[in-house]
Write a protein that binds this DNA or RNA. Structure first.
Lengths: 196, 196
DNA sequence: GCTCTATGTCAACGGGCAATGACATACGCG
DNA sequence: CGCGTATGTCATTGCCCGTTGACATAGAGC
């Protein structure tokens, strides 16, 4: 696609030589493909094609499919900015986001799909679990605080993940009164979980 | 394994000729492998070996890998017995189950992993979503009842799924006081969701 | 402008997998 | 007992994917 566009436009046919940009393009394509198809279902040729690059470059820059996956994983798990959340308002904000459609937030949706798939595969699960513990559960525990953090953090994480999955599976967004009720009650649940 | 056992025992070396049992064995092995490894990561040779059968039989009975996957999917989604749940006790029962370890219930765990994987793949997602709607969300709506069923059922489903995922990801089960608190608060959340 | 290196492309190979068709044999039926 | 079909096995084939090494060329440094 990129190449075709280049052919009909006035831009040069040959790819600009920019290693950094190329790696970024490969990584972006990889995250998308891994998210949609999982590790085994994603093919290097397809990823390379999406990035507008020859497949051999993946081996040069990432040392093979494994390396590319690891890089994509590392790039997908970044610590959520829990510290920015206000205890008084976060619940409603989050509930509103969950009531919306997944397509509105494709970047995060892809990242989440990617993690979900990787977490359910025994090959990649250890990597994911370790990263999730460190970069997701850790911050959540710190943010929630209070007694019995472990139990409460787990429930919070479960609800959080469940809402994301539900949003992912569902095609039709909620409307009108149902939407309003969904937000109210979801916010109530979330709020109750951060209180000791 | 089956063959080896047969060799050292007094039972015949050659497999008993029972098409129905063979198909059931293949299907069971397939569900397990698809759950663990996804569609692309599961190999017919391995499935056949687990079932104690030659791989060619899969093609004969299920018409190829696609057919086997479809059969396994169909077999994995069966309506949950919500009608058996008692409104007063289900919350605690479910919370206790969620506090336990996934290994204690491998059959359901595999089925859930299988569905989760299938639901996040664009190829199989439509099949899964339709079946989930009919055989999971439908019964939940009916069981919950009351006003704004749609919104409340979705939150309930989200929490349910989230708890399953959390249980799946976690290796270490909760112990002692944390476990007690987890059950109490999880039960409280679940209970609140079935009340109008 | 020459050269050298980093970047990008191409063609081929080797392994592994699903699928296929020929072959073997148990079991029902006469 | 003999035959035929359903069931199970084996060897082969063809395809697809990841990887590799040789080749091409832009662009920097001199």
């Amino acid at each position: 696609m990129t190449k075709v566009a280049a052919l009909v436009s006035d831009r040069p046919v040959v790819r600009k030589r920019d290693a950094e940009a190329t790696q970024a393009a490969i990584l972006a394509a990889a995250k998308s493909h891994f998210a949609r198809s999982g590790y085994e279902g994603a093919f290097l040729r397809d990823i390379a094609a999406d990035a507008g690059v020859d497949a051999a470059l993946i081996n040069r820059y990432f040392g093979g499919k494994d390396g590319l996956f690891a890089a994509a994983l590392k790039h997908s798990i970044r610590p959520h900015a829990f510290h920015d959340w206000q205890r008084e308002t976060f619940a409603v904000e989050m509930a509103k986001m969950m009531a919306g459609h997944a397509h509105q937030d494709m970047d995060r949706t892809h990242a989440f799909q990617f993690l979900l798939r990787a977490a359910t595969s025994p090959v990649t699960a250890p990597l994911v679990n370790a990263a999730v513990q460190e970069r997701f559960m850790g911050p959540i525990r710190a943010w929630i605080g209070g007694p019995n953090v472990e139990a409460r953090a787990r429930i919070f994480a479960a609800v959080f993940i469940g809402l994301l999955v539900e949003r992912l599976i569902r095609d039709e967004p909620l409307e009108g009164r149902e939407r309003k009720v969904f937000i109210e009650r979801t916010a109530a649940v979330l709020q109750s979980l951060v209180e000791a």
